[in-house]
Computed example of a mutant assay.
Amino acid sequence: MSDNIIQLNEQLIKTELKELVRSSVGETLNELLDKEADELINAEKYERSSERRGYRSGHYQRKLTTTSGDVTLKVPKLKGIPFETAIIERYRRRECSVE
């Protein structure tokens, strides 16, 4: 009878899980920022419509420190309408739970 022993590297698993959470938080926040910009402009990217209120003018990158680590956000820049996001306060660089 052979005894099979499985060894797990707990530190590696924790690191991989933290990275997975950090990347999914970043993707989710970036999607929310894009959707919010779409709603403000009243049109999606590359969409032409008569109800359009502004235009996209690229984005700028901004770091946000979360409990999972630093996340790079792509904040949309808009022409013709100010972009005030409800997701992240202006000049906020850290999530409330980090402080």
Rank of each mutant, 00 (worst) to 15 (best):
residue 27 E to H: 02
residue 96 C to G: 08
residue 97 S to G: 01
residue 53 R to W: 04
residue 10 E to R: 08
residue 76 P to M: 05
residue 32 L to G: 00
residue 2 S to G: 04
residue 2 S to T: 11
residue 10 E to S: 08
residue 81 I to F: 02
residue 65 T to H: 12
residue 36 E to D: 01
residue 86 A to P: 01
residue 75 V to Q: 14
residue 35 K to N: 14
residue 18 K to C: 05
residue 14 K to F: 13
residue 35 K to P: 10
residue 78 L to E: 09
residue 12 L to I: 05
residue 82 P to K: 01
residue 22 R to I: 03
residue 21 V to I: 13
residue 71 V to Q: 06
residue 45 K to Q: 05
residue 33 L to A: 10
residue 43 A to F: 07
residue 4 N to W: 15
residue 40 L to E: 14
residue 98 V to I: 00
residue 5 I to R: 03
residue 51 E to F: 04
residue 38 D to Y: 01
residue 81 I to H: 00
residue 84 E to G: 02
residue 47 E to R: 11
residue 42 N to S: 04
residue 43 A to N: 07
residue 47 E to V: 13
residue 80 G to S: 02
residue 67 T to F: 14
residue 80 G to W: 10
residue 94 R to S: 10
residue 19 E to C: 08
residue 84 E to K: 04
residue 61 Q to F: 06
residue 12 L to G: 05
residue 33 L to H: 12
residue 31 E to I: 09
residue 49 S to G: 09
residue 78 L to W: 01
residue 64 L to C: 09
residue 92 R to C: 03
residue 74 K to L: 04
residue 9 N to D: 12
residue 54 G to E: 02
residue 23 S to L: 11
residue 16 E to C: 15
residue 78 L to G: 09
residue 13 I to T: 03
residue 73 L to D: 00
residue 12 L to N: 02
residue 2 S to M: 08
residue 46 Y to A: 02
residue 6 I to F: 13
residue 65 T to L: 15
residue 40 L to P: 04
residue 53 R to F: 02
residue 54 G to C: 05
residue 5 I to Q: 10
residue 89 E to S: 13
residue 76 P to Q: 00
residue 98 V to K: 07
residue 90 R to P: 10
residue 36 E to Y: 01
residue 76 P to C: 07
